Simulated scan of single mutants.
Amino acid sequence: MMKVVIVAILALATALVSAYDPSPLQDFCVAINNTDSAVFVNGKFCKDPATVTANDFFFCGLNIPGNTAASKLGTSVNLVDVNKFPGLNTLGISLARIDFAPYGLNPPHTHPRGTELLVVIEGTLLVGFVTSNPNKLFTKVLNKGDVFVFPIGLIHFQFNIGETNALAFSGLSSQNPGVITIANAVFGSNPPINPDVLIKAFQLEKSVVDYLQKQF
């Protein structure tokens, strides 16, 4: 009986591990917002393969620098996921361009559905991620040409520690990795989290919690 239970638990664990971005069963499934389509895969309808062209697998614009001045944090992230690039549907990948002003920060955040592989193109970045319990920090200073990986679901960050602009590209192991920015989620949720919860969780005065919630 115990062996049966163990096998069942292992089977369930395997199923859960495989529950995101499954391997496609066809060459491609270019996403299309057309409810008349008969095929619905990974949250998107598939374009008729007979009408697919090379342009469905093409995206341009990542050569254009992001506007870091528009962000309080001095960063600009251009995520190219399935919602911007329909040809990515079912392929399990996406891409992001991240621009940093001097001392710009891509704040602590997670990607619930994707591992991130970051390569520095210009500048010097301090990067890191924190493991689940116990909360151990892995951190590294990266220079041009260096690569760092952030495991799926873990809180991570990138900080430009140089006096010049920095540029990095990230590959993510999901067509729609999602992003949860920690400060925004905690202090800027809609509707707001009850301040009493945040006061106790962070051991802060109510005035500080009120201030933080107003910032987000």
Rank of each mutant, 00 (worst) to 15 (best):
P134V: 10
T115P: 01
Q203T: 15
L126H: 15
T131Q: 14
L118C: 06
P49H: 09
N135E: 14
P65E: 07
G162N: 07
S189V: 04
V141P: 02
P86F: 11
A96T: 07
N135D: 10
K44N: 08
S189A: 11
E116M: 00
F129M: 06
N133H: 15
I64W: 05
A31N: 04
V186S: 04
N89A: 08
N176V: 04
R97W: 02
N143Y: 12
A54K: 04
P107F: 06
L142I: 03
F40T: 06
C60L: 09
P107W: 09
P195K: 01
D146C: 08
A168Y: 09
N67P: 03
G92P: 00
V30H: 07
T164V: 06
A101C: 09
S174Q: 01
L142M: 11
I121S: 09
V130D: 02
V149K: 11
N42G: 09
N55P: 02
F45Y: 15
N89T: 08
V147P: 05
L137K: 13
T51H: 03
I155R: 02
P102F: 06
A50H: 07
K3W: 09
K136N: 14
N135C: 06
L125Q: 05
A15K: 11
V209T: 03
T110Q: 07
V149E: 12
E116S: 00
Q26C: 02
